[in-house]
Nucleic acid binder design. Structure first.
Lengths: 339, 339
DNA sequence: CTGAAAGCGCTTACAG
DNA sequence: CTGAAAGCGCTTACAG
């Protein structure tokens, strides 16, 4: 590879010291306009781009944000990623991504993302163990959690959505508008906070309407179409009767719809179905899915903004909860136009 | 933030020089077993993680791969990203992502991803202008292209899929199995190589069967459901008649299906529809979409592997074309089980 | 406003 | 097998 221009080359060509070059590049200190101009010319002429590792080492800032995911899965992540990337780049940060679930263990153990290569970390759901979160807090390293509260005793900022009230709202809709009484619920993965909060909303809604919670109508879908598919078939084979099903998330809804279809049950005539997230595909399901819109791109943006504030030593909110919105389509039994 | 342990701290605690610490960490040169053990203990005790910028600066390798996309869009990218990330991490590389379409211009201009912060670049479709590709080749910087051939005169390795033969195969199916004669085609964005190759396959198939290409049956979908939706409505309003429609990609298919539905046309009875990609949602469309499976995760893996070889100075193939596969579902008129 | 110099935390010839 | 030293390309007090 050809050797690249360094700050010394620029300094030499412009006839100034490297300190001055650094200053006009970083706008740190006023520099004589004429000299600054000469430096800029030299930069252009040499096609000079500062070496970021040298910068990092000297300034002790990496200008890089890290994103930790369990795995790079379905299209749920895409909008979140887009939001994070946009904010990070606008603020001049690079974005490093690491899936903690898929990596080779030896790599995960000692390398991955952390204080040595990022200024701060965005941690989605359970991508990092509590121990490591505690360690990062102890050394005062900037971290923002997405869709997950900090473990007890730690004060790490969180950005999440109104899971509980969103869930309650959609179940309210099933009960109040459609008059359903037997409503099943599908959980996500174990210990998943989104799932727990949505289940809470489901229970609150039933309670509010004086309806008992039937444990036989609650099963685990894992936020995975195949698991959800199997769960629904099992409910049916056990003889459980339900008029409606709150699928916990839209991924589950895909498996649910398929399972009901295979069982000869019509949606919404025999069983109404509602989801959560308003994923990209929700409107193209048949029937179009009534669901709760989760502003996931916005979560990404907010989390990135908070992290940048943290990195800069500014104050951030401990907890940011973004509003969700009920999106009525047809799978609940409403006959409005597809949105 | 607490000061972190450095290599000197480790050396001191282990009673050796920093050179020795570096050697046991990097396995470069044999080190006395006992001494190595003492170093490892010190590393653990101090929770030492090498500072990657220092490493980068001293070794002149960043251990980071860059991925350039136009924008972080639909769920097409997700599997590709997963493939890239997995290979990169297994090989000990970090992954830096940048959407060249969305970034603030000043950032794009002088920073972004390049020789100063990555060892090599993965460039998806048209995320980088020809000029910049030429410059990178000139300085001998490792680059691998995904789903796009290098501009004339440049020799940059490519990983892509069998667009042309895949397209021909699915159109052959429409003609040979179902006997359709009037087959429309939807293009992707202008200058998109995938689209051009698929159109070529479409034309070749018609030609092979002695059928004329009717320019009135070709419209632009842009690989965007909304654009495709409008394009189909326009075809219909113009009075164009077609028995089948090859949508160019699955994103287009979503808009196509909606447009046909709104126009009161049944799929496949009135118009057969086939796509390309086999996106995550293809099987959950109604009817399930007959399409061409594009091994996009594999493209990501291969491209990452090639790039790593390039970075290491090894030889790579100039062009890697991964096979596609016809996936028959129901939107073409076949009545097999949903796959 | 500008320059000389120290230093960021590593790797890597060079000696031994 | 091991250590002392130079050097990677910047930033940033410190003087002036």
């Amino acid at each position: 590879m050809l050797p690249r221009a360094t700050i010394s080359d620029v300094a030499e060509r412009a006839g100034v010291s490297i300190s001055t070059v650094s200053r006009v590049l970083n706008n740190t200190v006023p520099v004589d306009a004429e000299i600054a101009e000469k430096v800029r010319e030299a930069v252009l002429a040499l096609n000079y781009i500062p070496h970021s590792a040298a910068r990092t080492l000297a300034s002790r800032r990496t200008n890089t944000l890290g994103l930790l995911l369990l795995d790079i899965g379905g299209d749920f992540y895409t909008p979140m990623l887009r939001g994070i990337e946009a904010v990070a780049n606008q603020a001049g940060y690079d974005l490093l991504i690491h899936a903690t679930g898929s990596a080779a263990p030896e790599y995960t153990n000692r390398r991955a993302l952390g204080e040595h290569n990022t200024d701060g970390l965005l941690v989605f759901t359970d991508a990092l163990e509590n121990d490591e979160l505690a360690r990062l807090e102890k050394v005062n390293f900037p971290v923002v959690l997405l869709h997950r509260s900090p473990p007890k005793g730690l004060e790490i900022p969180v950005v999440t959505v109104e899971n509980c009230s969103g869930a309650r709202q959609v179940v309210d809709h099933l009960i109040e508008v459609h008059g359903y009484r037997k409503i099943a619920f599908l959980q996500g993965p174990a210990d998943n906070e989104d799932s727990e909060q949505r289940e809470k909303g489901y229970r609150l809604s039933l309670k509010k309407h004086g309806m008992p919670v039937d444990p036989g109508l609650i099963a685990r879908g894992g936020f995975d179409p195949e698991v959800a598919h199997a769960a629904v078939l099992e409910l049916i084979s056990k003889g459980q009767k339900f008029e409606a099903l709150f699928t916990g998330d839209d991924d589950n809804a895909v498996g649910v719809i398929q399972a009901l279809h295979e069982s000869g049950l019509r949606i919404p005539e025999d069983v109404a179905v509602v989801g959560f997230d308003d994923s990209l595909f929700a409107r193209i399901l048949t029937p179009p899915l009534t669901t709760v819109r989760s502003p996931i791109e916005q979560v990404g943006r907010e989390a990135a903004r908070q992290l940048i504030r943290l990195v800069r030593g500014e104050v951030v909110e401990a907890r940011r909860v973004l509003p969700t919105e009920l999106v009525i389509r047809q799978s609940c039994g409403c006959h409005c136009e597809a949105k």
